[in-house]
Computed example of a mutant assay.
Amino acid sequence: MRHVISALVQNVPGVLSHVTGMLASRGYNLESLAVGETEDQHLSRMTFVVGGDDSVLNQVRKQLEKIVTVVQVDDISSKDYVERDLMLIKVAAKDQQRAEIHELCAIFRGKVVDVGPENVVVEISGPEKKIEAFIDLMRPLGITEMVRTGRIAMVRGVNRNGGTEQ
């Protein structure tokens, strides 16, 4: 089972390496990790995807809560949440393939962000399954390079105080 964990951490040097080092030293494999500053410049949000049963989730959560720079830990996979990945993908593109790539971009709500003489770079965001489906369609054209962010996620309809928005 996959768990999406959101951790609010102090925005200080070394917090990322401290957290990931602690998880790695205990043998936990992160399937995905994304970190970015929040609306408060003193805090960052780390979003992890961790595989394992509930005991693994509980252990990860306990270990994270022991770290001084971790402010809050939340398993959001058990809640109603929105998640997104972002990908840049460079695809080989001859003249006759460019129209097909543009058409698929429109269907997947992607955007061509760079065009070269022999390739096209596409930006696409969405749930993991959407990203994977787009990759599968691009493989026959020839993927020359690809980079993806880690998963980011946010619980729907909950305000800062933890209550449900009206």
Results as ranks from 00 to 15, higher is better:
residue 37 E to D: 02
residue 44 S to L: 03
residue 33 L to N: 02
residue 120 V to E: 08
residue 87 M to G: 11
residue 86 L to F: 06
residue 103 E to D: 15
residue 142 G to C: 11
residue 151 R to K: 14
residue 153 A to Q: 08
residue 40 D to N: 13
residue 131 I to L: 13
residue 84 R to A: 15
residue 107 I to V: 13
residue 33 L to Y: 02
residue 38 T to M: 04
residue 57 L to V: 10
residue 75 D to W: 01
residue 106 A to N: 11
residue 123 E to S: 13
residue 103 E to K: 13
residue 64 L to R: 02
residue 118 E to S: 14
residue 63 Q to Y: 05
residue 121 V to I: 15
residue 98 R to S: 10
residue 114 D to I: 07
residue 136 D to N: 05
residue 141 L to Y: 09
residue 136 D to K: 09
residue 28 Y to H: 13
residue 31 E to P: 00
residue 83 E to W: 04
residue 19 V to G: 02
residue 82 V to A: 14
residue 71 V to M: 11
residue 143 I to P: 08
residue 53 D to H: 09
residue 59 Q to H: 09
residue 41 Q to Y: 11
residue 103 E to C: 10
residue 150 G to F: 02
residue 21 G to Q: 12
residue 96 Q to V: 07
residue 71 V to Y: 09
residue 133 A to S: 13
residue 17 S to Y: 08
residue 31 E to C: 03
residue 136 D to C: 00
residue 77 S to F: 05
residue 93 A to H: 12
residue 107 I to S: 04
residue 19 V to F: 03
residue 151 R to L: 15
residue 141 L to K: 09
residue 75 D to T: 05
residue 94 K to E: 13
residue 120 V to T: 11
residue 118 E to N: 11
residue 78 S to Q: 12
residue 26 R to M: 01
residue 104 L to P: 00
residue 142 G to D: 11
residue 18 H to S: 13
residue 140 P to S: 10
residue 24 A to W: 01
residue 40 D to F: 11
residue 145 E to C: 02
residue 147 V to S: 14
residue 109 R to S: 12
residue 104 L to N: 11
residue 53 D to A: 06
residue 47 T to R: 00
residue 74 D to E: 15
residue 56 V to D: 07
residue 108 F to A: 15
residue 116 G to D: 10
residue 120 V to S: 08
residue 52 G to M: 09
residue 128 E to C: 00
residue 101 I to M: 06
residue 62 K to A: 15
residue 83 E to D: 14
residue 80 D to N: 14
residue 66 K to H: 08
residue 125 S to L: 01
residue 50 V to A: 05
residue 29 N to Y: 06
residue 97 Q to Y: 10
residue 110 G to F: 04
residue 20 T to N: 08
residue 96 Q to S: 13
residue 41 Q to E: 14
residue 110 G to I: 03
residue 138 M to R: 09
residue 95 D to F: 05
residue 49 V to F: 05
residue 63 Q to H: 07
residue 47 T to D: 00
residue 122 V to M: 10
residue 119 N to L: 03
residue 79 K to E: 15
residue 24 A to C: 02
residue 78 S to V: 15
residue 77 S to Y: 06
residue 54 D to N: 08
residue 69 T to I: 04
residue 151 R to D: 05
residue 95 D to S: 15
residue 18 H to Q: 14
residue 55 S to G: 01
residue 108 F to S: 08
residue 18 H to M: 15
residue 65 E to H: 04
residue 99 A to D: 09
residue 53 D to I: 02
residue 88 L to P: 01
residue 135 I to E: 10
residue 52 G to K: 05
residue 82 V to H: 02
residue 106 A to E: 13
residue 38 T to F: 00
residue 142 G to F: 07
residue 104 L to H: 08
residue 81 Y to C: 05
residue 80 D to F: 09
residue 38 T to K: 01
residue 18 H to V: 06
residue 68 V to C: 01
residue 152 I to V: 15
residue 128 E to Y: 04
residue 134 F to Q: 08
residue 79 K to S: 13
residue 147 V to L: 05
residue 27 G to R: 01
residue 83 E to M: 07
residue 29 N to G: 04
residue 29 N to A: 09
residue 68 V to W: 01
residue 73 V to P: 00
